[in-house]
Simulated assay, not measured.
Amino acid sequence: MGRSTPIEPLSQPLADGVVALRLRRASDLHPIQAAGRDPDTVRWLDDPPMDDAARRTSLSRVEEAWRTGRAAPLVIADALTDEPVGIINLQFRDDDVATVAYSVFPARRGHGIAPRAVRLLASWALHELGLRQVLLEADEDNAASIRVAEKCGFRRTGSRTEEQGDGSRTLLVFARATARTSM
């Protein structure tokens, strides 16, 4: 999966005065690694926590994701201090559709950061990259992510079941589309 063409990494952060979405830096890796051990982060995200080996190759994997058109991984930063407060990733299914995944670091949850970041990323994807649709998938038990989807203008379009080693889980699928697209 991915785009047929590479994505140009952001030359300037996407910002709204409170949060900024920017490229990852080596200085972001320790906070990302630490947040990845948080029980809520582990519960809701598919990716395993970053270990030392993954940390060493993280920036080259990020560069490869952009270069191959597979994904656009970014850091959510405080717009005033540039301190990393979360991560957000646009994962391309094809040239027209991508899925947004995000995580706000534990100390910054509950402050409206996730909706701001998702709005910025979805707007960029739909208007600057020309995507037809951005999806957000949330575990049916993840009330916070469901609220983020709804606050950001995503509309519930269905659900899907995902098999896991210890059973299955239901993911609710939300979509936000360009005005020219009917769903």
Rank of each mutant, 00 (worst) to 15 (best):
residue 102 Y to R: 00
residue 18 V to Q: 14
residue 63 E to D: 13
residue 107 A to P: 05
residue 53 A to C: 04
residue 45 L to T: 14
residue 181 T to H: 10
residue 164 Q to R: 14
residue 91 Q to D: 14
residue 60 S to T: 14
residue 113 I to K: 05
residue 41 T to S: 15
residue 34 A to L: 14
residue 122 A to G: 08
residue 182 S to V: 00
residue 17 G to D: 04
residue 107 A to C: 02
residue 178 T to I: 05
residue 177 A to Y: 09
residue 34 A to M: 13
residue 129 L to C: 04
residue 127 H to C: 12
residue 33 Q to W: 00
residue 52 D to P: 01
residue 137 E to F: 08
residue 12 Q to H: 09
residue 81 T to D: 04
residue 65 A to C: 06
residue 137 E to T: 06
residue 144 A to I: 07
residue 32 I to D: 12
residue 138 A to G: 06
residue 112 G to M: 10
residue 175 A to L: 06
residue 35 A to M: 03
residue 105 F to Y: 15
residue 93 R to H: 13
residue 94 D to C: 00
residue 17 G to E: 01
residue 92 F to D: 00
residue 18 V to D: 08
residue 41 T to Q: 10
residue 61 R to A: 12
residue 18 V to L: 11
residue 174 F to L: 07
residue 94 D to M: 00
residue 48 P to D: 05
residue 169 R to M: 12
residue 23 L to N: 11
residue 164 Q to E: 13
residue 97 V to P: 01
residue 72 A to K: 04
residue 14 L to H: 05
residue 119 R to C: 11
residue 117 A to Y: 04
residue 57 T to M: 09
residue 108 R to T: 02
residue 110 G to Y: 11
residue 104 V to K: 10
residue 118 V to E: 06
residue 101 A to H: 10
residue 58 S to M: 09
residue 28 D to C: 04
residue 146 I to S: 03
residue 24 R to K: 12
residue 87 I to L: 12
residue 145 S to T: 00
residue 93 R to G: 13
residue 7 I to H: 01
residue 158 G to A: 02
residue 20 A to K: 04
residue 11 S to E: 13
residue 169 R to Y: 07
residue 36 G to I: 08
residue 94 D to N: 15
residue 141 D to G: 13
residue 154 F to A: 08
residue 59 L to P: 03
residue 85 V to S: 07
residue 29 L to C: 07
residue 81 T to N: 04
residue 19 V to C: 01
residue 15 A to E: 11
residue 62 V to I: 14
residue 110 G to F: 10
residue 26 A to K: 10
residue 151 K to G: 01
residue 40 D to W: 05
residue 52 D to C: 06
residue 112 G to N: 09
residue 110 G to R: 06
residue 162 E to C: 11
residue 133 Q to G: 01
residue 81 T to L: 02
residue 102 Y to A: 00
residue 100 V to I: 15
residue 41 T to P: 03
residue 53 A to L: 12
residue 136 L to W: 08
residue 57 T to C: 09
residue 89 N to V: 15
residue 22 R to E: 07
residue 26 A to M: 09
residue 59 L to R: 02
residue 95 D to R: 06
residue 163 E to H: 15
residue 181 T to R: 13
residue 121 L to T: 05
residue 33 Q to Y: 01
residue 45 L to Y: 02
residue 130 G to W: 06
residue 40 D to F: 05
residue 110 G to H: 08
residue 42 V to I: 14
residue 43 R to H: 11
residue 47 D to A: 13
residue 110 G to W: 12
residue 64 E to K: 14
residue 180 R to T: 11
residue 72 A to Y: 02
residue 108 R to P: 03
residue 168 S to V: 07
residue 140 E to N: 14
residue 1 M to V: 08
residue 26 A to D: 14
residue 120 L to K: 04
residue 58 S to Y: 10
residue 133 Q to M: 14
residue 169 R to A: 11
residue 106 P to M: 03
residue 166 D to Q: 13
residue 180 R to V: 08
residue 94 D to V: 01
